[in-house]
Design a protein around this nucleic acid. Structure first.
Length: 180
DNA sequence: TCATTGATGGTCT
DNA sequence: GACCATCAATGAG
C-alpha cells in the first residue's frame, strides 16, 4: 500500500472511504478495482456500526490501527470485508460492497458477500494487514477524476437517523454496483 | 418491478 | 432467544 493511501486511511473515515474507490485490491493472486464502499463510524456514534456499543471479540480489530482487514460472518453463510480506518482506539471502517474485475474473474462481484466469495476471501483474513502478497490494496494514482455518488447505506434501516446519512459511495457511471 | 421469504449459524444480551 | 452491514428464488401486480 502506498504511503499516501496509508495516510488517508489513518484519517477520518469519510475521506478514507472516498479514497478507496478506484483502488486496486489484490487477493489470492487476483486484482480488481473497488467500485462501491460504505463508511461506518466508531463507538458510541453510528448506530449501524458493529462497534457502536463498544468492543467485543468480533469487532476488536476495528479498534486497532488503520489498514487492516475486518472480516465478519453474517446470515449464517456470508463473509463481508472491511478496511479499518482512523487511529488506534477509534473503531471506524469501510465496508467493501462491490468491485470491478480488471481481468477474468468467476462469479458476480456486486454485493459485499459476493465480492468476498468471488475473491476467495473469508474469516481467515480478519486482522490481516493490506500490504502482503496474499492481501493488498493500492492506489493506482489514476489521473482521471472519479465522480462519486452518495447514497444511504444498504440494510441498516434499524439504525435510526444514521440509516438516512449518505455514507454509501460508488463511482458514478460504473456498472459494478450492488443496487441502483 | 417490487415485496416477501427461506437458507443457515455466529454473536450478543 | 433475537437479531443480522446478504442473496436467490418466488409470486403478485
Amino acid at each position: 500500500m502506498g504511503r499516501d493511501l496509508a495516510a488517508v486511511l489513518s484519517g477520518p473515515v469519510l475521506p478514507a472511504a472516498r479514497a478507496l474507490l478506484g483502488c486496486v485490491l489484490r487477493a489470492n493472486g487476483v486484482a480488481v478495482r473497488l467500485s462501491e464502499v460504505e463508511a461506518y463510524h466508531g463507538m458510541g456514534q453510528d448506530e449501524a456500526s458493529h462497534a457502536h456499543r463498544g468492543r467485543t471479540p468480533r469487532n476488536t480489530i476495528m479498534f486497532g490501527p488503520a489498514g487492516f482487514a475486518y472480516l465478519y460472518f453474517t446470515y449464517g453463510m456470508h463473509w463481508c470485508m472491511n478496511v479499518v480506518t482512523e487511529e488506534e482506539g477509534h473503531a471506524s471502517a469501510v465496508l467493501l460492497r462491490a468491485l470491478e474485475p480488471v481481468a477474468h474473474l468467476e462469479g458476480r462481484t456486486q454485493g459485499p458477500a459476493l465480492l468476498c466469495k468471488a475473491m476467495g476471501i473469508d474469516g481467515r483474513l480478519t486482522g490481516h494487514d493490506l500490504v502482503s502478497d496474499s492481501l493488498h490494496i493500492d492506489d493506482p494514482r489514476d489521473e482521471r477524476t472519479i465522480r462519486v455518488v452518495k447514497r444511504p447505506r444498504i440494510g441498516v434501516d434499524y439504525a435510526g437517523h444514521w440509516a438516512k446519512r449518505l455514507l454509501r459511495f460508488y463511482i458514478a457511471g460504473n456498472p459494478f454496483i450492488s443496487r441502483k
